[in-house]
Simulated assay, not measured.
Amino acid sequence: MSRAYIEFRNVFFRYSEDQPWVLKDVSFRIFSDQWVAIIGHNGSGKSTIAKLINGLLTPEKGEIIVDGLPVNEDTIWEIRRKVGMVFQNPDNQFVGTTVRDDVAFGLENRGVERREMIRRIDESLKAVAMADYRLQEPHRLSGGQKQRVAIAGVLAISPQVIILDEATAMLDPKGRKEIMDTVNELRTQERISLVTITHDLNEITQADQVIVMNQGEVYLEATPREVFLEETLLQTIGLDVPFVAKLANELNKDGNIISKQPLNQEELLEELWTYHSIK
């Protein structure tokens, strides 16, 4: 991590003056090349944060900084060149009659030269394993394939940050894993920051940092391992830890069996093997 690329400074937001605050005095920092997962129950404010980062909404109080620029009307188009968003329903993002045309849309809007446009389309579709579908109609694709195309469209504009706003919510577990593995691989290769908005704690295991939202406030900020240790705390706000973490926490109630909070099944088995080897 080098520097704070995104910063929220005491941000307040509500949709109208006669409604309660959606965000209340929210402050946090996201660093370059970092994966931050923002989790919380429905209505906790997590999706509002995504829209504020990209300038789709404007805070009533406080300040949002992206790459040293305050997010406002004067900087909004520069910010959107730096930050790309993938939404829950990819159908809402499709505008082209073919996959290739859809990925080209953002590039055409930015006046990218044709030869460079073709190169970026080819590279972004290849990166998400959708090059063979470039002439397909988007509405004929599966849910996972549609999300891959939506991600390719964002990749093509070469952002420094990708925000996935509940982007896997409509997929089955296998599709979710494929999308998250693809995005994490792209994050490493392209050295971009990643912000994932989700209520599924199974998706946060590979993140560097987790921000837990509750009733518009930052409830907890920690690593995934530290978050999974707070099972009781999370349950009080309607969240639950994955089965592996739950099992590890139960085992430790009978003694210090698990020395390091596991993030997946392989780590849990390794911890159990180490414990029984010592015994």
Rank of each mutant, 00 (worst) to 15 (best):
V66D: 04
D67M: 06
G68P: 11
L69T: 08
P70V: 12
E73Y: 12
I76K: 12
W77M: 06
W77I: 03
W77R: 06
E78I: 13
E78G: 14
E78Y: 14
I79E: 05
I79L: 05
R81D: 08
V83H: 03
G84P: 14
V86R: 02
V86T: 07
F87C: 00
D91M: 02
D91F: 02
N92T: 08
V95D: 07
V95I: 11
V95E: 07
T97N: 10
R100I: 01
D102W: 06
V103S: 00
F105M: 06
F105P: 09
F105I: 05
G106M: 13
G106S: 12
G106A: 15
L107K: 05
L107V: 06
L107E: 02
E108W: 05
E108C: 05
E108L: 12
N109A: 05
N109G: 11
R110T: 06
G111R: 15
V112G: 13
E113H: 11
E116T: 11
M117E: 08
M117C: 03
M117N: 02
R119M: 15
R119L: 14
I121T: 11
I121S: 15
I121H: 15
D122E: 15
D122R: 13
S124H: 07
K126H: 15
A127M: 14
A127T: 08
A129Q: 10
A129N: 10
A129G: 13
A131S: 14
A131Q: 12
D132Q: 11
L135A: 14
E137L: 08
E137D: 15
P138Y: 01
H139I: 08
L141C: 08
G143D: 01
K146T: 04
K146I: 03
K146M: 03
V149R: 05
V149Y: 04
A152N: 08
G153M: 06
G153K: 05
I157Q: 11
S158F: 02
Q160F: 00
I162Y: 00
I162F: 01
I163G: 04
I163T: 07
L164G: 01
E166M: 05
E166F: 00
E166I: 03
A167E: 00
T168L: 06
T168M: 09
A169I: 01
M170L: 10
M170I: 04
P173H: 12
R176G: 12
R176T: 12
K177M: 11
E178K: 11
E178R: 13
I179Q: 04
I179C: 05
M180I: 13
T182V: 06
V183E: 05
N184G: 14
L186A: 06
R187H: 03
T188N: 13
T188K: 12
Q189L: 11
Q189R: 12
Q189N: 12
E190K: 15
E190M: 14
I192A: 00
I192G: 00
I192C: 01
